[in-house]
Simulated assay, not measured.
Amino acid sequence: MAAGFQRAELEAAVAGGLLFRPFRGVYATATADDGVLAAFRFNGRLTCISAAAYYNLWALRPAPALHLSCGNGVPKAGVVDHSTCTHPKHPSLPVAGLADVLLHALRCLPELDALVMVQCAAQRGDITAEYLRKKLPGKRNGRARAVLDLLIPRADSLLEILAHTHFVRAGLSVRMHVELPGVGEVDCLVDDWLVVELDGASHFEPRQIKKDHRRSRASILGGRLTLRYYYDDVVHHPQAMVAEIRAVLRLHANGGFAPW
């Protein structure tokens, strides 16, 4: 109505099926987002994992519940109610500001779920780890600050930040985005001789498959083996991935790839 629409026009749109009124004071189209409607219904703001899509942040898995910041502490079925927002909200939607979204995620989500969201925002320059760290003082925020220690300068996909975390925690010596002569840039280089590539959906395209095989051959000619892992490996079976890499490193150390 502040934009110039008259109540009679809105009522006519409802009667004609162009709009519907899910609850008092709110008019919506048939394609309205359920999360946005819920935010209006509960007089809150979408936040944490439920706000990831509105900032184009990586998300490791869909949220089993709706995450809102309502600020009244009243229990709501199917809703995780976060603390009050303290930063400027989204300019046009009932969505918390990016800083609040990430702070809520760091305090709420499993470690890796929060990590991919913060990595995505930080490497784009939308926010800094230092800013978030200052907002997380005291012992109670120690776990959240520890997630910030896992950030890397660049990750081209959530697979890269996850793989780097798993490799470092396994004690592997890994460098990311290394340029190799005749090969080009590789995702990971372990112990300076084992190439680990992390392949997303685009790597299943015929032209990309051929390019990847040529790069693998070039790696071998340069004295380096190549292992390739996919989304399912990195996200759902990281222990198996790390175990395989360790097995290859042991074979190399024991002369397993030498001629008989």
Rank of each mutant, 00 (worst) to 15 (best):
A77I: 02
S202Y: 08
D81A: 14
V116C: 13
T226V: 08
A247G: 07
D113I: 03
R214A: 14
A51W: 05
I127H: 12
S202P: 00
A63R: 09
L251A: 11
P94E: 13
R21V: 11
N43F: 06
P88T: 15
L162I: 11
L251F: 07
A258D: 13
V101D: 10
C85F: 03
V235D: 06
K134P: 00
H203A: 03
V101A: 07
E111N: 01
A105V: 07
R217I: 10
G223V: 07
G255C: 12
C108M: 07
P94T: 04
F257C: 02
L151Q: 07
P22F: 10
D232A: 09
P88Y: 10
A96E: 07
G35L: 08
H166W: 06
H166T: 00
E11C: 02
A15I: 04
C48P: 03
F20N: 05
E9C: 06
D156P: 01
T47W: 13
A38Q: 13
L102N: 15
T86L: 14
D191I: 00
R7T: 11
L109Y: 02
R145L: 03
M241L: 10
W193I: 15
V74Q: 13
V196T: 03
L98W: 08
L93Y: 02
V183T: 10
Y131M: 15
S216P: 01
D192W: 04
A258M: 10
P181G: 00
V195W: 02
R224W: 06
G138I: 12
F204V: 11
G142P: 00
R21E: 10
V183A: 01
L136E: 04
I49F: 01
R61C: 02
T29C: 07
H252P: 02
R107Q: 10
H166N: 01
G200H: 04
N43L: 11
H237Y: 15
V26M: 02
L103P: 14
R207L: 12
R133F: 09
S202D: 12
L159D: 01
G184Y: 01
P206T: 09
L158P: 00
A258W: 06
L150E: 15
D100R: 11
S69Q: 07
T29L: 09
R133S: 13
D113K: 06
A243F: 09
S173T: 09
L37V: 03
P238A: 11
A155R: 02
A121K: 13
D34H: 11
A243S: 14
A155F: 05
A247V: 00
L251I: 01
I245N: 06
I245Q: 05
L112H: 11
A122P: 01
M117C: 00
C108H: 08
A218C: 06
A146Q: 08
V178T: 12
A105Y: 05
M1N: 07
R246Q: 15
P110G: 01
D100G: 07
V101L: 06
G17F: 12
W260L: 15
A105P: 07
C120T: 11
L106V: 10
S202Q: 13
A13I: 04
P137C: 12
I220F: 00
V168P: 05
A52G: 01
A12D: 09
M176V: 14
G255I: 10
A144N: 09
V242G: 02
E185W: 00
R145T: 08
A155I: 05
C120V: 12
E9S: 10
L194I: 13
V74D: 09
L180K: 12
N43S: 14
V178P: 07
